[in-house]
Nucleic acid binder design. Structure first.
Lengths: 407, 407
DNA sequence: AATGAATGTTAAATTAATTTACAAATAAAT
DNA sequence: ATTTATTTGTAAATTAATTTAACATTCATT
């Protein structure tokens, strides 16, 4: 629902300019007052006032001497990103991962633990709570943890805190994870679904970091989802389920999906689909090296060593993924489409085939103006994204930030 | 490409608040100073200052006495929308329409003229220029025309001013209509493609006027396109071609389209497709009343009088349109999906079947939170939208407005 | 008839950015 | 080497927008 904007007063001006400076300070490691003045159009005196406040608050540091235009000396200004910590948690079907990050997204600890989501939420939630408690206790004497971001497999109705359409997660749709965790800790807990978290991580720290107008992050694991970042902000739609491309039809006469739809992209383009198709294809390809082991990684290595079955299955997979991407491109007209999730472990050969499939089905003028790449984030992009949800909540809200700074 | 925000100063505050007031004044017919103060959160003194300026500028009128809260007297304030005129033009394959509107979207004249776009742009452009000249001349002594909005069939690359993928428009991709018209008149000319224009008209003046967070306007004529309005603004994407759902795949093994893609929605869901399928089906339905006349309107009336062939063809059409809508809903998660174009002349029976098709393929929680309706705008919504493009340019840009007001 | 609340205006107060002036540092010109 | 110009940063005065506060009207309520 469209909400009416409020009027602006002087305090809002201050807040806007200070938030803008924080945003800029996040984007480069080191700034100078003069550089900030140029970038914002604000006068040097204004910048000085604000930065000196930031210094008083302990929000920024002056770090040595820089040489600016015409080699004039100037004072380096840097956000004290390591002053606080946030926790990022990724919940998945058979594991969860948890990381400790500073406000610049630097990782200080990381851990993966196996769980069995099929066994219901009780044990898994207990384990997650224990790990969070551990991190909180360990850091109590040192850096303050100011937020917890949780990424869960989507879709997820934002206002209710429940998981929807997760048939592999029996029992999880009955509870509100958000409330469960909110009441367990005295630290603010923020939620996002995994593809959105990965998308925001990509926007902030990917190869084309903070340059994209519309970024679509296509997240392929046991399902297919996507996160949409428009001008740096997640686009969520009415109920928060925008980007659910796994349940868009790419084959009108395709099989019925649990979501009610037919020929869903997810039916063709998930690791589950890969394994299923390999399994089904073994009869016709008895000589395939996948005969004994058809795990996802085996399929990828078989594909890269020219196994006939793997080649056939993955090319079919990519045909449909190509359609999915073409649909997203013609719908959203993004400048950046990033592929993430288990699938990218298959390596560059897969990307090349995918690209040629997409190119074939798009107008050249569109294809040539759309970047299609694998995610460049090596480590667990979802956990990083989960932490960024918490980081952004704090750093994009001046009054919340002041609260943490005790101002 | 993501562009960096600039800092805010006092002049910006003034501009923001004045623009906000204009926005509110547009949305209701009559306001009071106290009402504007409540709506914006600004103080009554501030509102008085701004409104009194607006009175000086001749931008608003005080119109009599209203009775506000607790029945206290107050002064009605109303935007002088009839002070200026804008021209809206809709270019189509075999006709163009042109309308004269005031700043509230009230129509003062309207005309449709046949053209043959197949014969190239020369004659058509000449006719359009002539009609624009007529309106300009006729109004020279009375109301000033401050903008011309042109809606052309999409897609359309914004920065180049050329029409792309319009195989039915030979020669039109060679010229820039924008430049042609820009140099012909001394009035600012603004461009938009037809689905976007209709979408913005719907957002402003449709049944759910100015309430929608994400509105998708699906425009079905000889092709299928859509316009996307997020928080009252058109979402255009990287090249301005967002919403090109006509060229999204709904049937992976479907026929090759001119765009390069396979099984495009447009192949199944356009009036061209309707006529084609009726034509092809006549052999099996010799008793159909469509035997002699298979124009679009005949097909619709045959459908409504239970003709077997029309029924079969339209139900197939709606099956695919249903997939298209489901895809859009799962991708954008809009709160409002509006169907427009020739297709809605088929009436409520078609809508009911479409709705049940969409309902069948969406999760109930999503379907129940998404409004799906025919456009409520009776008259030519594209021309109205074209004029709104011009109106919005002026009313959403204070300095442009001041220029027109000679301030 | 007295009281209280809503509407609108006016003048003073407030406050954030700007303007102006200045000092320090350094490059470029002489 | 000296002078000049430019960049960076700070400090005080100014500007300009909203807010605050005080007041007059108007009308409902008691």
């Amino acid at each position: 629902m469209y909400t009416r904007k409020k009027g602006t007063n002087l305090l809002d001006v201050q807040e806007m300019n200070r938030s803008l400076l924080i945003k800029l300070l996040r984007s480069n490691n080191v700034w100078t007052r003069a550089g900030l003045a140029k970038a914002t159009g604000l006068k040097r005196a204004t910048i000085s006032n604000i930065i000196n406040d930031f210094l008083d608050w302990g929000l920024v540091n002056e770090i040595g001497i820089l040489y600016g235009e015409k080699n004039r000396r100037s004072i380096g200004i840097s956000l004290r990103s390591d002053k606080y910590r946030v926790i990022g948690v990724r919940l998945s079907r058979n594991f969860f991962s948890i990381g400790l990050f500073d406000l610049a997204g630097v990782e200080y600890s990381y851990k993966v633990e196996k769980i069995d989501a099929l066994a219901g939420p009780d044990i898994a939630l207990k384990k997650i709570k224990k790990e969070i408690t551990n991190l909180v206790e360990k850091n109590r004497q040192q850096k303050k943890i100011i937020g917890i971001g949780i990424a869960i497999p989507g879709p997820y109705f934002r206002n209710e805190g429940r998981i929807v359409l997760m048939t592999e997660f029996p029992g999880w749709d009955k509870i509100s994870i958000k409330n469960e965790l909110k009441k367990a800790f005295d630290i603010p807990v923020y939620f996002e679904h995994d593809a959105n978290a990965a998308a925001i991580a990509e926007w902030w720290y990917g190869t084309h970091s903070r340059e994209s107008g519309t970024l679509i992050f296509i997240f392929i694991t046991e399902g297919v989802g996507s996160g949409i970042v428009i001008d740096g902000n997640l686009y969520r739609g009415n109920l928060g389920i925008a980007g659910e491309i796994g349940h868009t039809t790419v084959k009108a006469d395709g099989p019925k999906c649990e979501c009610g739809n037919n020929g869903c992209l997810e039916h063709y383009c998930s690791t589950i689909a890969l394994v299923r198709e390999v399994k089904n294809g073994l009869i016709n390809y008895p000589q395939s090296i996948l005969n004994k082991d058809y795990s996802v990684n085996s399929i990828f290595s078989a594909f890269n060593s020219e196994d006939k079955l793997a080649d056939k299955v993955i090319k079919e997979f990519l045909k449909f993924l190509g359609y999915g991407i073409v649909n997203v491109v013609n719908s959203f007209n993004p400048d950046l489409v990033i592929i993430g999730g288990e699938i990218i472990q298959a390596g560059p050969k897969l990307l090349e085939i995918l690209k040629s499939s997409v190119k074939e089905h798009l107008l050249p003028e569109i294809y040539n103006n759309t970047i299609l790449e694998f995610s460049s984030l090596k480590s667990d992009e979802v956990v990083l994204g989960a932490s960024l949800i918490a980081i952004n909540k704090v750093l994009q809200n001046l009054s919340l930030l002041k609260e943490h700074l005790n101002i």
